[in-house]
Computed example of a mutant assay.
Amino acid sequence: MISDIDYVKVGKPAPNFKATAVYDQEFTEVQLAEYLGKYVILFFYPLDFTFVCPTEIIAFSDEYERFRNINTEILGVSVDSEYSHLAWMQTDRSSGGLGDLKYPLVSDLKKTISSSYNVLSDDGMALRGLFIIDQQGIVQHSLVNNLEFGRSVDETYRTLQAIQYVQSHPDEVCPADWQPGDKTMIPDPIKSKEYFTAI
């Protein structure tokens, strides 16, 4: 269940928010609670019209169908206005713009969303925070990078798959670098030896 608490913590309900976003070249309202029943990749980035940010935003858009195929939606958030988001989308990628995106970009001009997810920097920008929220609105994964380096879409996808696997197989856990089809582990002092003797 999505929460109205004002901070984020893994294993706890994700802080809810309602905000203006840009999607399909139009302004729309996004509310996190409306995504219950789906997984959500919620990621923050510092500012529009910067350098590392478009590489991440475009990469998530290019891989959107892969996420949607496993019941997952993507939301990008920065402290820019919806007008800035729209202008950036209307700028060609060859000129540092975003072009069309397959998911909404949310405006956090008042910085309340970034604050509630503990990613607001001292300079008033959002750090590169990324959160995976499950179908019940519970935060299952949190990652925060500093401003200068981007995140991995492939690792986000792998982590999401691991979350989905253990939620559908509650008697198993996923070891390091687990990929779908790899051997899992039974979290038991005796049964776990089956995994370790096989590696």
Rank of each mutant, 00 (worst) to 15 (best):
I41S: 07
I41L: 12
L42G: 03
Y45Q: 01
Y45P: 01
F49E: 10
T50N: 02
F51T: 11
V52S: 00
V52R: 02
P54G: 02
P54Y: 05
P54M: 04
P54I: 09
T55P: 02
E56A: 09
E56Y: 10
E56T: 07
I57K: 02
I57P: 00
I58H: 04
I58L: 01
F60M: 07
S61I: 15
D62S: 06
D62C: 06
Y64C: 11
Y64P: 00
R66G: 05
R66I: 11
R68F: 15
R68M: 13
R68K: 15
R68Y: 15
N69F: 08
N69T: 11
N71D: 11
N71V: 07
N71L: 04
E73Q: 07
I74H: 03
I74C: 08
G76R: 05
V77S: 03
V77I: 13
V77D: 00
S78P: 02
V79C: 12
V79P: 02
V79T: 14
E82S: 15
L86R: 05
W88N: 01
W88F: 06
M89W: 02
T91P: 00
T91R: 13
D92M: 06
R93I: 13
S95M: 15
G96R: 03
G96E: 08
G96F: 06
D100C: 10
L101D: 14
K102F: 09
Y103T: 05
P104K: 01
P104R: 09
L105R: 08
L105H: 07
V106T: 07
D108T: 09
S116F: 01
Y117P: 04
Y117H: 05
Y117F: 12
L120Y: 02
L120D: 04
S121G: 12
S121P: 08
D122C: 02
D122S: 15
D123N: 13
G124F: 10
M125C: 13
M125G: 01
A126I: 11
